[in-house]
């Protein structure tokens, strides 16, 4: 990086030019269409579209379920990452590879598979039904679907940090009289906290926009189990393009803020780790 002012490599104009051209064509111009379309609405029309009781109920559901799903993944993802890096048990390598399944499995497939299991006649649903617990076709089903699609994020952000932790610090803590729980809370946890938070945020951001896996298991009752992406689809099917776009813009703005936050977190994360070494 020292000689950045006299870079001799060719292809800068071509590669950057193509990058910006393609980015504009596929991403930036189409996304700007959403904002331009919304600007044709008056402030009142916009407010009616994005703040009607049914839409507000969908925000609460989407964010609430995403938050719970991401929290489950933070706790059990940390546990999974820990078990995969620290312990040996049969089938570990296969299980490690399968953690990425939610990235590879199409969301529609995940949706119908989860519904089959958690429906009242499914493998788990039939165990819960006698106790009066309904999972599929309720908000709990939405949490299950959002937990599934966010599962790899925390595991995959925490795992490399756990692998790179120096054994010496833990040995030092032990020789100074700390027990394992103290070592975990005072030494290990602070080191992995930024990665855990990053994974949590990634899972949360992914869950907010998720559509395919949720609609099968949700039941999609207005005011009860209707997520915001479904509201957009419903408005589109009623040819209410402006209304659909207004709700989309609200979601886009929230997603952009989350993306900036996550980028900041990752920067913090990498700075901490490079300083530790």
């Amino acid at each position: 990086m020292s000689k950045k002012h006299n870079n001799v490599l060719p292809g800068f104009n071509l590669s950057l030019g193509f990058t910006i051209f393609y980015l504009s064509l596929i991403v930036l111009i189409p996304l700007s269409a959403a904002f331009i379309k919304t600007s044709t609405l008056s402030l009142h029309e916009f407010w009616v579209a994005v703040a009607s009781p049914r839409v507000v109920a969908s925000y609460k559901l989407t964010f609430g379920a995403s938050l719970i799903g991401a929290s489950i993944n933070a706790l059990f993802g940390l546990l999974t990452a820990w078990v995969l890096t620290r312990y040996t048990f049969p089938g570990k390598r296969i299980i490690d590879a399968l953690v990425d399944l939610p990235f590879a499995l199409p969301t529609a497939v995940a949706g119908i598979a989860l519904t089959a299991i958690y429906a009242p006649n499914g493998w788990i649903g039939s165990l819960l039904a006698p106790h009066g617990i309904k999972v599929a076709f309720t908000p709990i089903g939405i949490v299950i679907a959002l937990t599934f699609i966010g599962l790899p994020f925390v595991v995959r952000t925490v795992q490399p940090i756990l692998e790179d932790l120096e054994a010496e610090t833990e040995e030092a803590a032990a020789s100074l009289g700390a027990n394992r729980w103290q070592t975990f809370t005072k030494i290990i946890f602070p080191a992995i906290a930024p990665a855990l938070l990053t994974g949590f945020s990634l899972a949360f951001a992914r869950a907010i926009g998720e559509y395919g896996s949720v609609i099968f298991i949700a039941g999609n009752m207005p005011m009860v189990s209707e997520i915001t992406p479904l509201i957009i689809i419903t408005k589109l099917e009623q040819y209410d393009y402006a209304g659909a776009t207004a709700v989309a813009v609200v979601m886009l703005v929230i997603s952009f803020i989350l993306l900036l936050g996550i980028n900041g977190l990752q920067w913090w994360n990498s700075r901490r780790n490079s300083r530790a070494i």
Partner: peptide, 30 residues
């Protein structure tokens, strides 16, 4: 290469990950 706005460019490339798939379809309909 080094150039101004590089980190903004990297963030913009990541944008489609932050956009709900439903919205990705919607913008092309618009």
């Amino acid at each position: 290469f080094e150039f101004k706005g590089k980190s903004i460019l990297i963030t913009l490339i990541d944008l489609p990950f932050a956009v709900s798939p439903v919205i990705a379809g919607l913008i092309y309909v618009l």
